[in-house]
Every structure is written in structure tokens, then in C-alpha cells.
């Protein structure tokens, strides 16, 4: 086995501790920024659905403000957003480099996308279900928890899977501000020092991660769909 790795990944094997560290950094970025963004996006996604025209708490001012902010942020390419956020990141977390420094730009980068995904996930909840909840005498918060969040679970799982895959892509990009992670590893060794096997090692590992995430996503979707 060792012989196999040494033969096909001659530049990775001697750097295994660094490679492991990069895997851990990638997971840190993914889970911390993904977790925080999930909570924010749920709030924003629900707010969009309930405040839009015909929503249970229709408020077009709030809806339009959120809608425009999301569009504005989504129009900025992520690499530029990271650079533009450096002063804010530094003010917030004290540093704009390293894994810690990447969390904030990752959250800002993924939340607009995630919110849109969740908005459309909640929009899939049939208006008839919401109407029947209203006729039962449920209040807005009961409807959010007992109808939107509950009936939207499988759509939320689908949206989350897509977002996590996207977020994985963003974690590779933040390597440019010294964020570390697998993307950084592939660029530094594979690209800049022309060690192609380093790139392939990263590619294979990422493909495995993504497959696992998609599998988990589809299991949740299947478990929560009763049709």
C-alpha cells in the first residue's frame, strides 16, 4: 500500500502531516462557516417567504431590502469579495489571514446563495397547506415552525447539499488569503511547484467528500419524503 502511494503520489507522501492539516482546515472552514450560514440563511429564507406578496406576514419593505442586498452580494465574484472584505474581517476577528480569517468572508460569500436556495425550498411548500394552517387558527410563528420548516425539510436538505458543494469550492478559493485547506495545498504544490500528483490527490479526496455529502443529502431527502 505504502509503495503504491509513494509511486503515484511522490510529492504528497513526504508532506502527509501538512496534507492532514489541510484536510482539517478545509473541514473547519466548511463546518464553521456552513453552520453559521445555515442559521442565518434559514432566518433570511423564511423572512423572504413570509414577507413577500401574499405571505403570512407580508411586508414588502423588508422583502425588497433583503432581496436587493442578496442580489447585490451575489453579483460580486467571490475572489473580489474576499479582497474587498479584508478591512471588515480584520476589524471583526482581528486578522484577515489564516483559517480564522476565512470564516467571515466565507459566510458573506455563501449566505446570499444559501438564502436564495432556502427561499425557493420554502416556496415549494404548497400554499394550500399554509392556508389550511391559517384556517386552523395557527399564528405566524406556529405556521413557520409547524408548516414551513416541517414540510420544507426535504427541500431544505436538497438546498443544503447544493450549497455545501458550492461552499467546498469557495474554501478552495480562500487559500489565496492564506486560509490554508486543500485548495491552498493544491495551488501551492500542484500548480506553483508543478507537482501534479498533489493536485490529483486533492481532486480525488474532494470527489470522495462531495460524494459522501450528496449521499447524506439524498438519504435525508428520502427519509423525509412520504410520497
Amino acid at each position: 500500500m505504502d509503495a503504491f502511494f509513494t509511486k503515484f503520489f511522490p510529492n504528497v507522501v513526504p508532506r502527509m502531516p501538512e496534507f492532514y492539516a489541510c484536510v482539517i482546515q478545509t473541514f473547519q472552514m466548511l463546518f464553521i462557516s456552513g453552520g453559521i450560514s445555515f442559521v442565518l440563511s434559514l432566518l433570511i429564507g423564511i423572512t423572504l417567504v413570509v414577507t413577500k406578496r401574499g405571505g403570512i406576514l407580508q411586508n414588502l419593505i423588508i422583502f425588497n431590502i433583503l432581496d436587493k442586498i442578496i442580489n447585490a452580494f451575489r453579483s460580486i465574484p467571490f475572489v473580489i469579495l474576499v479582497a474587498a472584505l479584508i478591512p471588515v474581517t480584520r476589524a471583526l476577528v482581528g486578522t484577515a489571514v489564516g483559517t480564522i480569517g476565512t470564516i467571515f468572508p466565507l459566510i458573506v460569500g455563501i449566505t446570499p446563495f444559501f438564502s436564495r436556495q432556502l427561499e425557493s425550498a420554502f416556496s415549494e411548500v404548497s400554499p394550500g397547506l399554509v392556508e389550511s394552517a391559517v384556517t386552523m387558527g395557527m399564528g405566524p410563528f406556529e405556521i413557520i415552525f409547524r408548516v414551513y420548516l416541517r414540510e420544507g425539510i426535504s427541500s431544505v436538505a436538497r438546498a443544503t447539499t447544493i450549497t455545501v458543494v458550492n461552499l467546498m469550492g469557495l474554501t478552495a478559493i480562500v487559500g489565496i488569503v492564506g486560509g490554508g485547506g486543500l485548495g491552498d495545498f493544491a495551488i501551492r504544490y500542484g500548480y506553483q511547484r508543478n507537482m501534479l500528483d498533489a493536485t490529483y490527490a486533492v481532486v480525488i479526496l474532494l470527489m470522495i467528500f462531495i460524494s459522501i455529502i450528496e449521499l447524506l443529502g439524498s438519504i435525508i431527502v428520502e427519509q423525509t419524503t412520504h410520497e
Binding site: 386552523m136 399564528g139 416541517r150 414540510e151
Partner: peptide, 25 residues
């Protein structure tokens, strides 16, 4: 008021053409 209206709705059941049952329950 809104809470009074909700209390009233609890005393008025409604059924629909397409049933509107919660699929996850």
C-alpha cells in the same frame, strides 16, 4: 383582533378540494 380571529377560526373548521393534508405527518 388577530388573536380573537384565530380563536374564532378554531371554532370554524374548513375542508378543501385538494384536502391540504400535511404530507410529512
Amino acid at each position: 383582533s388577530k388573536p380573537e380571529l384565530r380563536t374564532l377560526r378554531k371554532k370554524m373548521g374548513m375542508i378543501f378540494q385538494l384536502f391540504n393534508l400535511m404530507p410529512s405527518r
